[in-house]
Design a protein around this nucleic acid. Structure first.
Lengths: 257, 257
DNA sequence: CAGTGGTCTAGACCACTGA
DNA sequence: CAGTGGTCTAGACCACTGC
């Protein structure tokens, strides 16, 4: 077990005007480089927060602030009641989602031999917001279905997806209809399968709800997408918003001149 | 100025087994809904942390923990010495980057009437890591150039981009060569312009270095991309890694069946 | 049960902003 | 200069884990 020699740079009162960073940043860097040097092996626990505080000559709050930075970046994983562990090394298993083709989550997982799972978080009929109505080419009074699902692969939560469906084009729908089957398969079966879509990607921080559903720390980076899909008749059929775990999901695409 | 009626749910000791969330989450929600109700207008300051602490009957640390959540999600902006302000409302100006075509940052900004700026953070000749060598189809001993640039538009930092260039295919390069001109223009001029590329997108949290360069809070969500580009001869010429501000940058693309 | 991370407090000082 | 956010402390109790 490594011993931290000095109490950080306690005795170096930034002599030559060297910008001395806050203690918690120094602590974070100290821990990070110790991990990189292999002094703490992947899967092993770091010393307890209280012990680190004593060793480094700082308060526990400062240690926690430092570890929080490493945790949100995925270098370490905290387990309540157990310890703080160095994250499993190497590039973690990442889902490579091809972005150029119009595929569903379900198909996509199957095509790479993973069991696509899911759970319907909520299903309801309702009305679109003004903005969403515009996107779906509806008037705000027309009906939509709203399906919110948690997508999993290999038993692990990967994404939260919310779909708004044009009820008028789709016909009656009940909660049971969206339980097991792929939404895309359902749309196809009803003759309004999407043939074209526009997709936007951005990065956002997880709020506490998404964090809870996906099993990541609050603030963890998520890949957020919004996808608007049209059927063969050129009518919008689905507006889908999804949040993918940033540490598990890659979108890949090919570009040409 | 709104007054918070109760001291949170101090007097409701989760009677029916209602999961009572931590105080800082409650504080965050209290503030968030006050903002949504318009009690604090965009651009205006929130009450000072010390005052919120008194009003809500919690310690200042707890208030700070709550505000930190809102800050990383972009709802509020903290200004040291001045105050905490509700973020400018509405959808902020977001750069919409079309992902389907092979364009450079410079071209891309120009095409939408923005002045593309930039600053070279570092330029050096060197050798690729084992992994990067494989991607560039080089042996680890062969030479590469490494250019790190801060990209700006409208005077605001938008992205940090690091390019690894195959020195053998490119010929001699000096720091001056990459100063003002677009890298793509440079490659084209030397006859190794990229005609095909593979691009990966993911979401990561900003470490303190990227946060500092981009002017966002540590932990803010960034869109990270890696792009490997080939020239007409089918040889890899560039491996580029970029980090875009999640709150300013959208990637957009069209999908077909 | 002991040991761990999770939350919270009261109070202190520093660094920065703006009148 | 007063007021603000930024950092830090010492100590407390809770909630969870695993022996």
């Amino acid at each position: 077990m490594p011993v931290f020699s000095s109490r950080l740079e306690a005795a170096s009162p930034d002599a030559a005007g060297l910008a001395s960073s806050p203690r918690y940043v120094q602590v974070a860097r100290t821990l990070e480089s110790a991990i990189e040097r292999g002094e703490y092996q992947p899967g092993n626990a770091l010393p307890a927060e209280r012990e680190l505080a004593v060793r480094l000559g700082v308060s526990r709050v400062t240690v926690r602030q430092a570890i929080a930075q490493l945790a949100v970046r995925g270098l370490v994983v905290r387990r309540h009641g157990s310890g703080t562990f160095v994250a499993p090394s190497g590039p973690p298993v990442r889902i490579q989602h091809p972005l150029s083709r119009l595929t569903s989550f379900t198909e996509d997982m199957h095509s790479r031999g993973l069991s696509a799972g899911g759970r319907v978080l909520s299903f309801a009929a309702g009305h679109p917001s003004a903005q969403d109505a515009m996107k779906l080419n509806l008037s705000p009074g027309q009906q939509i279905y709203r399906v919110r699902r948690l997508r999993t692969a290999g038993g692990e939560a990967l994404a939260v997806e919310e779909s708004l469906l044009n009820a008028g084009r789709l016909g009656p729908l009940s909660a049971g209809d969206v339980q097991d089957v792929s939404l895309y398969a359902l749309l196809q079966a009803r003759g309004v399968g999407p043939v074209r879509a526009l997709r936007q990607l951005r990065a956002v921080n997880a709020d506490d709800e998404l964090a809870g559903l996906l099993g990541v720390p609050v603030g963890a980076a998520l890949l957020a997408t919004e996808r608007l899909a049209w059927d063969a008749a050129g009518q919008p059929v689905e507006l889908a918003r999804a949040h993918y775990r940033g540490d598990r999901y890659d979108f890949v695409m090919e570009l040409r001149d």
